[in-house]
């Protein structure tokens, strides 16, 4: 592509007078992208997350060994080498392969929690904020009850009640992580609820349902996306914590938290068993945090409309 066509495409995107819905939307996305990409660390964060997704998708190709079946006879607790990049664990399984497959479980947990918790929080928060009165009081007191317990303890209680396993861990984390989202969505709703543009829609005869769904929720979504992204690291750590305590993923699933738990026994002599999944958790958490910070710059409604 020549420099001129790039230039003209940029002008098309940044046009003050878009000629179609598509151009208006793409233009807006492009402006957000420019703000996002001006932040180098955010780009690093995004690259980490893209890498995580690629590793999860291509695990079958990338992993040289099975994640669940090891070579007990010849390959127990081997240090890192050319054959086993990150060494092997106590059951003779290749740690590199387990981490590659573990990326799938990490993504699975993160995505499921996000798509369960964020919509619940968004719905509760916007409805409470817009309706006010008794609805608000009841919904927010329920939220307060959830917020009054430490997250991990509450998740522990839920898992204990539901039974251990990664699905239940996801459910427990989701149930404990929506209240902060509800608070954010409510706060955001309160600031826009009395604005003239919401009144203008009321004066067209729109139903409260329509106002919340089509006019208020879109305004809350960007701060929610930012918060959820920043929380991803916490979700991964909670999942790892549950795995570590034996309440999350069950053996032989290659979940990173559970891998650290099983490596704990040899942490002094065979450090690599716990260090490799630990580093993986660290890098991915860092990636989500950097990405979240970048999204805050790009999507923040307070700075985003000028």
């Amino acid at each position: 592509m020549s420099a001129e066509t790039i230039q003209s495409r940029r002008e098309w995107l940044l046009s003050d007078r878009p000629a179609s819905r598509l151009q208006a939307r793409l233009g807006r996305a492009y402006v957000a992208w420019r703000r996002f990409s001006a932040n180098r660390l955010a780009l690093v964060g995004m690259l980490i997350i893209i890498a995580l997704v690629l590793v999860a998708a291509l695990a079958d190709v990338l992993a040289p060994y099975s994640a669940t079946v090891g070579d007990l006879k010849n390959a127990r607790l081997l240090p890192p080498s050319a054959a086993h990049w990150f060494g092997t664990d106590d059951l003779g399984r290749d740690i590199y392969s387990r981490i590659v497959y573990g990326a799938r479980w990490t993504l699975y947990v993160v995505i499921l929690v996000a798509i369960i918790a964020a919509p619940i929080g968004l719905l509760v928060g916007t409805v409470a904020g817009y309706a006010g009165g008794w609805t608000d009081t009841i919904l927010m007191r329920i939220t307060d009850i959830f917020l009054a317990f430490p997250k991990l303890v509450l998740a522990l209680a839920f898992v204990a009640a539901l039974g251990p396993g990664i699905e239940n861990a996801v459910l427990a984390i989701a149930i404990t992580s929506w209240p902060p989202y509800a608070r954010i969505a409510r706060a955001e709703t309160l600031t826009v609820r009395n604005s003239d543009y919401i009144k203008a829609v009321q004066l067209m005869g729109a139903s409260p349902f329509r106002i919340v769904l089509r006019h208020i929720m879109p305004l809350c979504i960007s701060s929610l996306i930012i918060r959820v992204t920043l929380d991803m690291a916490g979700i991964i750590l909670t999942a790892a914590g549950l795995g570590f305590l034996g309440l999350g993923a069950q053996p032989p699933l290659p979940e990173w938290g559970a891998m650290i738990a099983s490596g704990r026994r040899f942490i002094l002599d065979q450090w690599w068993v716990a260090a490799a999944p630990g580093a993986a958790i660290l890098i991915v958490s860092l990636g989500f945090n950097l990405l979240g910070d970048g999204l805050r710059d790009a999507l923040d409604p307070r700075s985003g409309d000028q």
Binding site: Y197, A200, V201
Partner: peptide
């Protein structure tokens, strides 16, 4: 129908 005072506040910021 009504027209509001503040033209900066009466249009939804995320809508064309």
């Amino acid at each position: 129908q009504m027209v509001f005072q503040d033209p900066y506040g009466s249009l939804h910021p995320r809508q064309t």
